[in-house]
Design a protein around this nucleic acid. Structure first.
Lengths: 213, 213
DNA sequence: GACAAACACGAGAGATCGCTCGCGTTTCAC
DNA sequence: GTGAAACGCGAGCGATCTCTCGTGTTTGTC
């Protein structure tokens, strides 16, 4: 109480070696989570994959869930850093096709670069804290899409806009699953299909707005 | 070898009581699988839900996986019985909208009536035999959609038709997830949105074929 | 009524997993 | 150099889960 420390924070001083181990463990965890999913992934397997003992793993993470949470946090941070408010620039000058195309490309690229992100967000086995993060991200993204749609179709009921936004996100997720299941040219083709589905779904809704031809 | 039995079949004679227990256990398993998923569902929990002892459960099922497999088989059978070759009647006289609408309605109705079907097919935690069944169903359904699409767009490359079919199935699954997450009027609205996505996606592909206006 | 087979029970064997603990090693400030 | 703290190890504790087994009960056949 009288100490200078706020309330719950005595974050043991980390050495450079420790930071390296943490990165190593998170990389190993990503690998294991990708191949077996969160629940089936054992902490011993993660430690083995990282080449350290189980005890060492628990030197840096209080429990299994904390590994997934930290991994999720770092991915979120990297996502924000890479794309910032990628969905925010509603730039009314951009045609619908181009807006959807670049948004899909950006998110597809991120998810194919970090397949563990999909593994952590998609499983029905995700832990409590992870589910919160998932819901928060879901809400945020849905909100962004809602805002974007709201500016494109100003005379639609808010409930309809929200539903449309959720449908768009669902379609994107379905496309992502197909994209992740294929490689090379086939993968590119599914990316294009995903864009087409979204464009054709939204075109009639936004009306003649920006829809050139 | 010399017996009249073929090779591997001595299916212990079941009494009526046994058949009742099996149905009871499968219903309990469906309940538990729906709420906790396959992996997290414990056989003891299923037995408790059914009001019997763990030993009794293993009197009728050799292991946990067999419960899911039997449940899946019965659902498949019920599906075929209820809708037969629902996707087969490509009836070229039916407009695209109507064909998609009735197909989506039928499958949505089945899945909302049997939510465990989605739970068993969707989880990344499904066991080996279940994954086989999932893949088989996936292949069958995709094939049906391919056949239907092939007759609507006869001058398209087979690879493109296959891809389009997989996209349609993915879109349907995404819609199903949204439908299962809502109720009442909202659920109906998401069903309609799913149809719209599919119709608008396919309309340009099948060209002026049957597209009245 | 008598016998066999199917049904039912529940304690617990065997295996796995998350996580801990005691002890030895490395790093760093002074 | 020296002491303290961070790092590292791996056997194993406790909890949980799947599945078994010995025993007792119910059902069907003669």
């Amino acid at each position: 109480m009288s100490d200078t420390t706020e309330k719950e924070q005595q974050p043991r001083r980390r050495q450079a070696r420790g930071e390296r181990r943490i990165a190593q463990l998170l990389a190993a965890a990503a690998q294991v989570f990708c191949t077996t999913g969160y629940t089936a992934a054992s902490t011993n397997a993660i430690a083995r994959e990282a080449g350290v003992s189980p005890g060492t793993l628990y030197q840096f993470f209080p429990n299994k869930e904390a590994i997934a949470v930290e991994l999720g946090d770092r991915l979120m941070h990297e996502m924000r850093e890479a794309y910032g408010e990628a969905l925010a620039p509603v730039d009314p000058a951009t045609p619908l096709e181009e807006a959807i195309g670049s948004a899909v490309d950006r998110f597809m690229a991120f998810n194919t670069d970090h397949p563990v992100f999909f593994a952590l967000m998609h499983g029905p086995d995700i832990p409590g804290r992870m589910a919160e993060a998932h819901d928060q991200l879901h809400t945020t993204v849905t909100g962004r899409i809602e805002a974007l749609l709201g500016s494109l179709m100003p005379d639609a009921a808010p409930a309809d806009v929200g539903r449309t936004a959720r449908v768009c996100l669902g379609v994107y997720k379905a496309g992502l699953e197909l994209v992740l299941a294929h490689e090379g040219a086939e993968r590119a083709a599914y990316t294009q299909e995903t864009k087409d589905v979204l464009i054709r779904y939204l075109e009639p809704l936004v009306g003649d707005r920006l829809g050139r031809a």
